[in-house]
Design a protein around this nucleic acid. Sequence first.
DNA 1: GAATAAAATGCAATCGATTGCAAATTTTTT
DNA 2: AAAAAATTTGCAATCGATTGCATTTTATTC
Lengths: 344, 344
Amino acid sequence: MVTLVSETKLTLAKLAEIAGVSTSTASRALKDNPLIKQETRSRIQALAKEHNFSINAAASRLRTQKTHVIAVILNLIDNTEQSTTDPFLLKLVGELNQALNAKGYELLLSNSFMASDDWANYFIRSQRADGIIVIGQGKSTAKIDRAAQSGIPIVVWGDAKTDAPYPIIGGDNYLGGYTATQHLLSHGAKRILFLGDSEHAEMQERHKGYSQAHRDANVPVDPQCTCAIDITSKAAYQYINERIKANGLDFDGIVCVSDMVALGALKALKERYVGIPSDVGIAGYDDISLAELMHPSLTTVRQNTQQAATEMVTQLLNQFENKPTENQVVETTLIARRSTKHSD
Amino acid sequence: MVTLVSETKLTLAKLAEIAGVSTSTASRALKDNPLIKQETRSRIQALAKEHNFSINAAASRLRTQKTHVIAVILNLIDNTEQSTTDPFLLKLVGELNQALNAKGYELLLSNSFMASDDWANYFIRSQRADGIIVIGQGKSTAKIDRAAQSGIPIVVWGDAKTDAPYPIIGGDNYLGGYTATQHLLSHGAKRILFLGDSEHAEMQERHKGYSQAHRDANVPVDPQCTCAIDITSKAAYQYINERIKANGLDFDGIVCVSDMVALGALKALKERYVGIPSDVGIAGYDDISLAELMHPSLTTVRQNTQQAATEMVTQLLNQFENKPTENQVVETTLIARRSTKHSD
DNA sequence: GAATAAAATGCAATCGATTGCAAATTTTTT
DNA sequence: AAAAAATTTGCAATCGATTGCATTTTATTC
């Protein structure tokens, strides 16, 4: 049965007319307001369904001053492949979508290039969204701070140890870095590279864990082993290639800040016939779906993204009710696989 | 300099008052309407910037009946990992975001589980969005057809050879299937599996290409080689494992409908020490970023996603102006890598 | 300098739903 | 059966920007 497009657009007023009630009654009936007699409610709801009616969101938002939309901003580092490619970030977006929908909100997707610089203005004051979720602290928190300062509801995925005027949700980066490193050390590694970008708060934490694990195992940390690179597989690939070319194989383990980085490094090593994990053990971060499909399967640190999404949404909605918020650390676990299993 | 939150919300009317003009003038000035004197325009625009003003989107949408929002629906197959994980789909979303922003539109993300069943109603008649982009035809086009029937602006990513009342943008699936298969055949494969879900229009086309390539090379096609599986790495992994267990290695090539499927198959083969490509050549589809990082790097079929996104947006915007639309085929190229390079 | 044309601005209706308060209806109480 | 209470429903203002048309101001022409 095809619903024909009626000549005139169906509004609440017209629906009310058909039902023989006022618009107020119709409005209330549609949202199951107990002020309206049950029978009337059902009748109008049925009528709405029959006529294929749905409330005009623009009008409703204007009147109620609520949009039920949340802007999710991918806060990316400029000129980095991390953007469209990073499976972890996109997975998080997927989870957020679910979590938001479950609470009756919709997801407006943006990235930091596109959105104007003034997030508070652009998204909130303009009534495009009720709140903002920022994925990634980036290298500078200037934009985030600015938005937060103007008092809008906002949460951030990042380093939960950072103290900020807005709630930050993140994995336990220190622990992640620590356990990954410890794992490698316990399998005999003596010189472990740390591959990542130290300008990120999250990465710094992981690096602290990396250092502490060394200290706890009485293995010296060589600054030469901390390698600042872009968080992309390509950068990792190039770096490892060049390092080996220059120094030979002067390491026997790698801790990477993401699986993408690990995969880039892995590729470089394989091409040079470096045995994994026999010659070099390697650990990633994020547990993207491909980690276990790699050969050898990749040891990595998993952050519970579903928990993360739920938590972020909760913290955001709390702000709508002026409830207190706090940083949250999500489950962070080492997934040990073949890329680190020395036999010795 | 911190902008303090003013006691009363700043509206166009108040801005106009400050500027000493009417709201009509202020409104026109802000959108650079030449009806307004250039000097007045600049003055008001400056004032708006200074006071951190931005137009109320809800009010504007209500009045103009345009939202400048496009709903992007991930039309997924139920209960499949394909959802949140498939890097290809998410990449497409990223590209769409860019393409839409470039045209002054925003992206509202949904998936087919969340959005109610009546897309036309939920997104368009409710003024949540001006148009819909559907990613994936899914197994049934019922929802799409229904939405299209009610005359709303819509485009679909899928099989461009399908004739439908809405424009479909897609890669050349026949060609993709054909070239991948031909490539394997030309490197000596004699029994090539086709791994995928034949209920998809896109996959069917690829399968046609697969068959034709066999015919052109005078290699018989065995129906036993067409394997219907879910489009996930896990399903592929299991299938290959079980097949080998049951039949031994009764094939020497695999054409997969996605890279994820290829990776699953690859994993199964490696675990059984099947040489790649020496014993079995394998080709994927999508050219996700990991394809080249695999070991061996994965031969695959790349579809130009950026072109796809631009094309989809164009076709959608055309509908706003009642311009004619048509199906579009985007660039589809074989990327030959190590996973298929036999030496014989 | 008056008349006409051109440029700039303002008036006021409109988009469609929501909601405080008043009015009408029904039910309960005495 | 009248009064009081409880239940339903409706009136009308409101949210904030846009735009056709009318009006005012400025520039041009004779």
